[in-house]
C-alpha cells in the first residue's frame, strides 16, 4: 500500500475495522511516516476527547413510561381481551428479551468464530485488500503459502464451474493464522477460510446466516472450512460441494 492508500485507511485502522495484515502494513508505515502518524494520533485524540466527556444522552424515565403506556393502548386497539393484551405484551417482551440474550450469549465458541468469519470477510472487502497473492492459477497460489503456515491447503480453480479463483491471503481466525482463499461468483466475492481441524471426522456443510451474510462450515480431509459471502445459500452450497468434491 502506498502513502495515499494508507491515509484513506487511517480511520478504519483507528476504529479497529481492519484485518490483521492490513493493520500490520499500516503500523509499519506509521513508524516511518511522520505525517500519517500525526494524523492517526489526532484521530485518537479526538476520539478520546469525545468519550472522555461522555456526551451521550439517556432516555428520560417519563419517555419510558409513555412508550409503555402507548404500546399497551396500541395492543388494546386490536380488541383483544385484557388477558390477551397482557399475553401479547408479555410475548413481545419475551421475544425482545430472547433477542438480547441471543446477542449476549453469542459468546459460545462456534458463534464467536462465525462472528469473526463474517468480520474478516467484511474487512477484506472494506480494505480493498482482498488478496496478498492475486492469481487465478492454483499453482501460483498454493506455493505462496509455503513457509508462511504449517499446513498445506488444497487450492483449486473452479472457473469452469463459474467460481474463478481470485487469489489468497493470510488471515487470523480463532487466535490462529489461517489460509483465506478468495473466489468470485459473478460480482460476489467469496472468502474461504481453512485451518487444521481438531475433530477430524468429515462433516457436511452446515449453513447459517449472520448480519446478512451466508456462512457455510464443514470439515474435509482434516481441515475446517468456512465459506462466507453475500451470495445466496443455494449457490454457496453449490460452491462448497466443489471444494469438498
Amino acid at each position: 500500500m502506498n502513502h495515499d492508500e494508507i491515509r484513506e485507511l487511517l480511520h478504519a485502522y483507528a476504529d479497529d475495522e481492519l484485518d490483521v495484515i492490513n493493520a500490520l502494513q499500516i503500523e509499519q508505515h506509521l513508524s516511518a511516516c511522520d505525517e500519517c502518524r500525526r494524523s492517526e494520533e489526532q484521530i485518537r485524540a479526538l476520539r478520546e476527547a469525545m468519550t472522555e466527556h461522555t456526551p451521550g444522552y439517556r432516555a428520560p424515565a417519563h419517555l419510558r413510561r409513555n412508550i409503555r403506556a402507548a404500546l399497551r393502548r396500541e395492543a388494546k386497539e386490536t380488541h383483544f381481551s385484557p388477558w390477551l393484551v397482557f399475553a401479547t405484551g408479555a410475548a413481545f417482551a419475551a421475544v425482545l428479551l430472547g433477542l438480547i440474550l441471543f446477542q449476549t450469549v453469542r459468546g459460545s465458541r462456534e458463534n464467536a468464530i462465525v462472528d469473526q468469519v463474517v468480520a474478516n470477510h467484511v474487512r477484506s472487502l472494506l480494505a480493498t485488500h482482498l488478496v496478498d497473492v492475486a492469481s487465478s492459477d492454483q499453482h501460483t497460489v498454493k506455493p505462496w503459502f509455503d513457509g508462511k503456515i504449517d499446513f498445506a491447503p488444497d487450492v483449486h480453480d473452479f472457473a469452469i464451474s463459474g467460481f474463478p479463483l481470485v487469489g489468497g491471503r493470510l488471515d487470523y481466525l480463532d487466535g490462529k493464522t489461517v489460509v483465506a482463499l478468495v473466489y468470485q461468483r459473478n460480482k460476489h466475492p467469496i472468502n474461504v477460510f481453512i485451518m487444521p481441524a481438531i475433530k477430524t471426522s468429515e462433516t457436511s456443510p452446515d449453513s447459517l446466516s449472520y448480519r446478512g451474510y451466508n456462512v457455510l462450515s464443514w470439515t474435509h480431509r482434516e481441515m475446517n472450512y468456512w465459506a462466507v459471502s453475500d451470495l445466496n445459500d443455494t449457490e454457496l452450497r453449490q460452491f462448497s460441494s466443489l471444494l469438498a468434491h
Partner: peptide
Amino acid sequence: MPHLDAAYNLARFLMRNEQDAEDVVQEASL
C-alpha cells in the same frame, strides 16, 4: 425496553431538542 437509550441518544442528536427526540422515539417504538 431494550436499546431505548441508544434510540433516544440518536434521535436527540438528529433532532437537536428534547421534545422532538421524545416524539420520534415514541413514534419509532410504535
